[in-house]
């Protein structure tokens, strides 16, 4: 069953797979990003309560979803790297981490910019915002741990261990923060229920989610290719590839 997956443990095959996948993700990203932003900014109807400020949702929700999705994929890659000792999975962890951190940062910034007109404050200690902030810390921890090591091989493994420890802790952190929040001040935002949203707003939102997912895919692939090249730079296939001017 795993036979067809095995070749991709080899760096060269993984590199080629990245190249094959890249155009699909790129097309999805460009098309959905253009359509989603234009639709979301200009054509979607204004919300009857929040007026035009709600348009931030079209980037806030996708980035928040992707920030968590990126962390879970990073953790899955980390588990694979630790259990089966696959170097490419380690590289994938390092490739995803900055992208996930960027998504988290976008979610936080847009959340603040949305919170100011709606709640009257740039930052409230709401459960979701707080756990998003902690998520950013976890990403930054993985990244700075990786960059602190001289030897990139042990750096990758250490980052994997930290990612796995983080993913075990993440539900506990999320649950405790949510519980802390209800205890201290009560829920501040009304839950954004997808079923309650009109389809004229839902469609651009979904398209934007696809666009962000595509973007995460594209940048992760680019970074993964870089990491593979970096780690295999003395191998003949890399030299041949670079010599061809690719």
């Amino acid at each position: 069953m795993w036979k067809w997956l095995h070749p991709y443990a080899k760096a060269e095959r993984a590199y080629q797979l990245c190249n094959t996948l890249m155009p699909y993700f790129a097309v999805v990203t460009v098309v959905c990003l253009v359509v989603g932003w234009v639709w979301g900014l200009a054509y979607a109807p204004a919300d009857y309560q929040q007026k035009d400020s709600y348009r931030i949702i079209f980037i806030h929700v996708p980035s928040a979803i992707l920030s968590m999705g990126a962390y879970s994929s990073m953790a899955i890659a980390a588990v694979i790297a630790l259990v089966w000792q696959i170097r490419n999975a380690e590289l994938a962890v390092i490739a995803i981490a900055p992208v996930g951190a960027a998504m988290t940062a976008i979610a936080l910034i847009t959340g603040a910019a949305w919170g100011k007109p709606m709640w009257g404050a740039w930052w409230v200690w709401d459960a979701r915002l707080t756990s998003e902030l902690i998520l950013l810390f976890l990403y930054l921890g993985v990244l700075s741990l990786y960059h602190a090591f001289e030897d990139k091989k042990s750096a990758g493994r250490a980052a994997c261990i930290l990612a796995v420890v983080g993913v075990i802790n993440l539900p506990i952190i999320h649950f405790s923060v949510e519980w802390w929040n209800t205890l201290h001040q009560g829920a501040t935002i009304t839950k954004f229920d997808t079923s309650a949203i009109d389809s004229s707003m839902l469609w651009p939102l979904l398209i934007n989610i696809a666009a962000f997912a595509g973007f995460v895919g594209v940048v992760t692939l680019i970074r993964l290719k870089n990491e593979i090249l970096q780690c295999e730079r003395h191998r003949p296939w890399v030299r041949e590839l670079v010599g061809r001017g690719e």
């Binding site: 902690i134 810390f137 976890l138 930054l140 921890g141 700075s144 741990l145 930290l162 420890v165 983080g166 802790n169 506990i172 952190i173 649950f175 405790s176 923060v177």
Partner: peptide
């Protein structure tokens, strides 16, 4: 401390 403190939150 950067790695550990977020995990201390719960």
């Amino acid at each position: 401390s950067l790695l550990v403190l977020p995990l201390y939150i719960p």
